[in-house]
Design a protein around this nucleic acid. Structure first.
Length: 548
DNA sequence: TCTCCTTTGAAGATC
DNA sequence: GATCTTCAAAGGAGA
């Protein structure tokens, strides 16, 4: 069986450890405080087995202790942050927090809607969070698996985003443990369950990326996760000693893990006609942690670059941001993109190790289907669309018409199309697209899209590659109300590097009618041969293998 | 409150 | 095998 080290985790972890060690002295004091707090919390948790009477008698004392711990904790954190959080080292001063019942707060790749949207939206560079069905679910799961929820602070979370950088809105006090102050910002750090019952934040093997995470282990510890856990425990001990903290145990077994027959009743639902067991199964299904898909290269890139775009362009709409990011993605060099592809590959590898039985199919239907609706409307769109705008797609072999989203997501304005695709781009150049980086990467002969080409039509697919990379816009839906971004297709400035946002893309004065024809591409025509032997559907790993 | 928007890539589904 | 569909993140906007 492949080891985690194969994923490159060890190197990252070791690197992290080294950096953490450098900060040992500086944080020794606050560490002790943290240890005190953590020990107290551990003891608190361990004492949960005491009798109810004892517990009642200690209620007041516990309350006082919690308050005291809270203060200690905040003080320790303050020292911690003062001591190193903003030190040059990305890991310096990173606090590890072990909160007994913090497990419900977050986690990667599990999403059962436990966290309100706000709980995640302000963690822009976190690894995908683990959405659990709620605190009770965590506790119940913990009970089922008899696993202590290892609450291990992700050591990389402050790599580029110190805890304090998180928006306060991200924290919901009511989700925190008693005595757990939102002021610390701790809770904004993601914690990742290593099991359905345990939360852990483990350094992601793809260490450099912000918000790296480990994956929660569905159904318990997998060997890979155990290895990671072990590595983590030993590695982080240099700076902070993660400890296993017993969670508040639930006495209510989770239905899915009940012995058959305990809750399931024979018979058929009178209303639905479905057997109760089916209903129960559905309920169980709903309660199962939702394991999210591993992020692909572009998603990883988006996570990293989104804050930059937001700050540089002062844009808030994700749709707009994503368009910019899409353009920037194409502007990345092959090497830069390869970095993300490699990360994504490791992500998938790790994901597959942690969830051997998981399939993307598992998540099918868990989101509201809307693309299909779009595709249904597409027929009408194409019927209504001027044939001259569709023609190139129909005539060119390597057209983006093969792209699944060619008719779904590209809703560029007609004016843009008329200015770009019709007046400038030849069918060959516009449709034989190196649109996807995978395509470009697929061909060693394909020059890296290192263009910093200027564009007037900015957004809505009017990227520097717009004419060459995104012929998808030929299948624009003219009848639809253009997305605000779609109307923003030009920048008044004569030349605007694609990576810059000097002109806010959402500038209201930028209307399609003002979209002037972009300058001729500064880049050589995209390598039409890049498509050659490889298809888009070919797994990137294969493409890269072929490429390399 | 829910869905859409918007991007690219991966993977499953379908033909 | 080619094509289509869904989902992954994000958060504002609109219904």
């Amino acid at each position: 069986m492949p080891q985690i080290e194969d994923l490159g985790a060890t190197d990252e972890l070791l690197a992290f450890k080294d950096e953490g060690d450098q900060d040992d002295k500086r944080t020794a004091s606050s560490e002790r405080d943290l240890d005190d707090v953590k020990s107290s919390l551990v003891n608190e948790s361990e004492s949960s087995s005491d009798s109810e009477a004892d517990r009642r008698s200690r209620t007041d004392a516990d309350l006082q202790n919690r308050i005291r711990h809270s203060h200690l904790f905040q003080e320790a954190l303050r020292r911690q942050q003062d001591g190193g959080l903003f030190q040059p080292s990305p890991y310096v001063g990173y606090p590890f927090f072990m909160i007994p019942d913090l497990g419900n707060l977050c986690g990667p790749y599990l999403a059962n809607a436990a966290l309100p949207q706000s709980a995640r939206t302000y963690l822009p560079f976190q690894w995908p969070l683990l959405d659990i069905t709620g605190r009770s679910a965590i506790r119940e799961s913990a009970t089922q698996t008899h696993l202590p929820p290892n609450v291990v602070q992700h050591p990389h979370m402050t790599h580029l985003h110190p805890l304090l950088s998180y928006s306060p809105e991200a924290f919901s006090p009511q989700r925190a443990s008693p005595g757990f102050s939102p002021d610390t910002g701790m809770s904004r750090s993601p914690c990742y369950p290593v099991s359905p019952g345990g939360m852990a934040q483990i350094p992601h093997p793809l260490g450099w990326l912000q918000g790296q995470t480990m994956y929660p282990l569905a159904g318990g510890f997998s060997p890979a996760a155990l290895a990671m856990n072990a590595s983590m425990s030993s590695l982080v001990s240099g700076s902070f000693s993660p400890r296993l903290v017993s969670p508040p145990q639930s006495s209510v077994p989770h239905p899915p893990f009940l012995p058959s027959g305990v809750k399931q009743e024979p018979g058929v639902s009178s209303q639905t006609g479905r057997s109760l067991s089916d209903v129960q199964r559905d309920k169980d299904e709903e309660k199962k942690p939702h394991i999210k898909k591993p992020l692909n290269a572009f998603m990883l890139y988006m996570r990293e670059e989104r804050p930059n775009v937001v700050s540089q362009c002062r844009v808030k709409e994700s749709a707009t941001i994503n368009q910019i990011l899409g353009q920037r993605w194409h502007s990345l060099s092959k090497e830069e993109q390869a970095k993300y592809y490699e990360l994504a590959r490791k992500e998938r590898l790790l994901h597959s190790k942690l969830y051997p039985g998981w399939s993307a199919r598992d998540n099918y239907g868990k989101k509201k289907k809307r693309k299909r609706v779009k595709s249904e409307t597409q027929f009408e769109d194409e019927e209504e669309f001027p044939p001259q705008l569709k023609r190139p797609c129909e005539e060119t072999p390597h057209t983006q018409t093969t792209h699944p989203r060619s008719h779904l997501t590209q809703q560029h304005t007609v004016s843009h199309l008329t200015h770009t695709h019709l007046s400038q781009a030849s069918p060959a150049s516009s449709l034989d697209s190196p649109a996807t980086p995978t395509t470009a990467l697929a061909s060693p002969a394909a020059p890296a899209p290192t263009h910093t080409e200027h564009t007037h039509c900015y957004g809505g697919g009017a990227s520097p590659y717009g004419e060459q990379l995104q012929p998808l816009s030929l299948t624009t839906k003219p009848h639809r109300t253009p997305h605000p971004l779609s109307r923003i297709t030009i920048t008044p400035e004569p030349v605007t590097p694609i990576s810059s946002c000097d002109t806010p893309i959402s500038s209201p004065h930028m209307a399609p009618s003002r979209c002037s024809p972009p300058p001729p591409p500064l880049l050589p025509p995209p390598p039409t041969s890049a498509h050659g032997a490889l298809t888009q559907s070919q797994p990137f790993s294969l493409r890269r293998t072929n490429q390399l």
